[in-house]
Design a protein around this nucleic acid. Structure first.
Lengths: 236, 236
DNA sequence: GTTGGTTAAACTGTCGACAGTCGTCAATCG
DNA sequence: CGATTGACGACTGTCGACAGTTTAACCAAC
């Protein structure tokens, strides 16, 4: 039973309740106010947020489709708990999507795309320097999202956005270790160089390396902070 | 204004109403009982199916996450209408996922997987011979789903399943032209041969060709039956 | 002390109802 | 005659309530 984030009815005010509840739940899960595998009570959430159960249920369904919650019939919703295998799966799918995206992007690399990506690297570095872990992660994801965006496939982008929610879950599982801004900068500039070269194989190698590093980082972090490999409740 | 598929309350009976309503809606959309862009009235559906609006809403949200419906705030749910660009996007994403899957599968190709896939080709051919268009499509998709399954990445499979719903939408848009069973057989056996070779490049070429054919088939079918390229209501 | 059964509480799935909002159509004005 | 505005109707978003089920606790028997 995690404590509610905010006072009963100061946070939720007007319409789009579903979206607001979904945001609240997402934040609460990512910030570990709900523990993995924990059961979420609809009535409790309703009381805490000062809304009825209907929006809560719909928001929970939304989070279920995003992979943050799991519903068991007649049992309710549970916070998604990832084991080691699923962690690998998430990063493998990420690799799948980004490989495709970076190669599509290389085919249609515009000055606008290059400018936007370069700018985002600057923002990312600034975020890394600011020592705000959450912001660094968000700006990092935003860079990759921009790549997907400029790849020009709306559906590919949607698949990535879906995966992003689970990615946040993976990333925030680990202790927020600090990474030097210049390391991040060079790491991302390599992607830009590969894109500028326009060669598919170069792009593929670059993204493979980039995501491989990110994956190892998370996998290592998880096995350090405590082994989530087999302990988890993982209903389906 | 599409007529309901079944009599008011003969089809829906016991619990898991949400899933049943979702299945009903999916079938109705795929079988074109609801036209693309058409608005779905929650109350009307509730009356037709003999249930309350809550399960209908939740089912609609589910279909929205699957890309079959689109919700406009305060306006309701609309049947997804695909234009030409989105059609390309769907098949491009399919290519992305299946490329990755077939290469992963080639790395871990087991006798069991080979046996299952071969068997599915048999089933597929039988379905093609039976002249049941819907069944042929389903068995075809099932073959590809098996490939994804044996690739060993649960999340990749989920992404494919999500896409499958949209794929059905694309495929059933076109007139159900008949394809000879032996053509289908050889087409899929090429994939099996590539897998047996174990060479990534061979697999990639095979799947590129296979999906390229399927895409051209659908794209051609759409531009034949009537140009869906720009006429569609596509809110976002 | 442990195990099995029984009862009670809590929760989910579903329902009907109310309020606010949007689209439609008709009447009015320019 | 066309455009604007107003009211009407329908619909969505949200709520509280009820029924069936699951969970948990408690008591009894071994």
């Amino acid at each position: 039973m995690a404590p509610p984030l905010a006072a009963p009815n100061t946070f939720i005010q007007q319409h789009n309740l579903v979206e607001q509840v979904a945001d609240y739940l997402t934040q609460a899960i990512i910030q570990q106010h709900f523990l993995p595998g924990e059961r979420l009570s609809e009535v409790q959430l309703s009381k805490d947020l000062g809304v009825s159960r209907a929006p809560v249920r719909e928001a929970a369904r939304l989070l279920e489709s995003r992979g943050l919650l799991i519903s068991k019939p007649r049992r309710g919703f549970f916070v998604r708990a990832l084991n080691g295998v699923e962690l690998e799966d998430v990063f493998d799918l990420r690799l799948c999507l980004e490989r495709h995206a970076i190669q599509r992007l290389a085919e249609r690399y515009s000055a606008e795309a290059e400018r936007a990506l370069k700018h985002q690297v600057d923002v990312l570095c600034e975020a890394a320097a600011s020592n705000d872990g959450t912001r660094r992660i968000e700006e990092d994801l935003q860079f990759h999202r921009l790549m997907l965006h400029y790849a020009g496939n709306e559906r590919l982008l949607r698949a990535f956005d879906n995966l992003t929610h689970e990615l946040r879950l993976c990333i925030t599982l680990i202790t927020n270790t600090h990474e030097a801004p210049d390391t991040i900068a060079t790491s991302h500039f390599k992607l830009l160089d590969a894109l500028a070269s326009g060669q598919p194989d170069t792009c593929r190698e670059a993204i493979d390396y980039h995501i491989g590093v990110a994956r190892d980082f998370v996998v290592k972090g998880v096995s350090d902070t405590g082994d989530h490999h087999h302990e988890d409740v993982l209903p389906r």
